[in-house]
């Protein structure tokens, strides 16, 4: 096998791998939402409640946490 053929196989394999990763990610997103482990949709509110005085949707430090 010359280097060109090798590259082509590697390229194909890598693409297939990334496709699998992408689809697993989709599966993860929707199943996590369904099982209730993580609510992704609430992050949409980050754009709406964006005054500096608003509570963060998910705070970094405990002080800013929604009580």
């Amino acid at each position: 096998m010359d280097i060109g053929t090798l590259q082509a196989y590697a390229y194909f394999g890598f693409t297939a791998f990334l496709v699998v990763v992408l689809y697993s990610y989709i599966y993860h997103l929707y199943s996590a939402q369904k099982k209730g482990t993580r609510d992704y949709e609430k992050y949409g509110n980050i754009a709406l409640n964006d005054e500096i005085t608003d509570q963060p949707i998910e705070a970094i430090s405990k002080n800013d946490e929604i009580k």
Binding site: I26, Q33, Y40, E41, G44, A47, L48
Partner: peptide, 19 residues
């Protein structure tokens, strides 16, 4: 979303479309 007051329709779709 901000101007219309509507949160993005599907946040998951936005992540997916990003990747």
């Amino acid at each position: 979303p901000k101007e219309s007051g509507q949160a993005v329709y599907s946040y998951k779709l936005s992540l997916l479309a990003f990747w």
